[in-house]
């Protein structure tokens, strides 16, 4: 039987597309659902030079080795999740990596459907996030280009700081409804506009 995937978003029931506005006006917070991207969990020992070299060869560029950093390259974002753990999002070179890492102890796990990303931006984006997240969002550790595994309300998120007032909030699929509603509730005070999440 031929493969035919019909994907459903875990936020489909919120009918966000119908709420999308082109001009967010004076809404302090803009929220969007990011389109689904391929995702791959990569495990290996960052203390093992041969592994790191193979990882780099498989990627075609150096993976992030500093804690809570992201390297973005040609439609692929590589998130540092831990000293032996990365998350690849976007144009994932799965086969290339598998071949490059074949001789080193590693693990590659397709987790494409595990998480979705919610975009949060606007002049009050940081205030919204500060209601739900205990991190110091103004600290250098969360400068643009950084990421952090942390808490969102009573759930978990992978926070990606895109710019001073722009974040991607990666949450597990089953928490997506909760995360969206918590964020929107927190943002109500400043005004919320749903915008297009990009292609």
């Amino acid at each position: 039987m031929a493969e035919r995937r019909i994907r459903h978003s875990p936020l489909a029931h919120l009918h966000l597309a119908a709420r999308v506005v082109v001009d967010p006006g004076d809404a302090g917070a803009r929220m969007s659902e990011r389109p689904p991207r391929a995702q791959l969990a990569v495990r290996g020992d960052s203390g093992d030079k041969a592994f790191v070299a193979a990882f780099k060869a498989g990627l075609g560029f150096s993976p992030p080795l500093a804690a809570n950093t992201v390297v973005t390259h040609d439609g692929l974002a590589v998130f540092w999740l831990g000293p032996s753990e990365w998350l690849l999002v976007g144009e994932v070179p799965g086969e290339q990596l598998a071949a490059a890492l074949a001789d080193r102890h590693h693990a590659l796990v397709d987790v494409s459907d595990s998480r979705i990303a919610i975009g949060l931006s606007g002049p009050r984006a940081r205030d919204v996030l500060a209601k739900l997240c205990p991190l110091d969002l103004a600290a250098p550790a969360l400068a643009p280009g950084r990421c952090a595994g942390t808490i969102l309300a009573r759930g978990h998120m992978l926070l990606h700081v895109l710019a001073e007032d722009s974040y991607d909030i990666h949450v597990h699929r089953s928490f997506a409804d909760y995360a969206w509603r918590m964020l929107e509730d927190a943002a109500l005070e400043y005004g919320v506009a749903v915008i297009d999440g990009g292609g």
């Binding site: 999740l81 831990g82 753990e85 595994g149 942390t150 978990h156």
Partner: peptide
């Protein structure tokens, strides 16, 4: 007291 902690919501270490 010497104790073990795990950064479960962060790096998992």
């Amino acid at each position: 007291h010497y104790e073990r902690w795990c950064h479960g919501h962060g790096c998992g270490r």
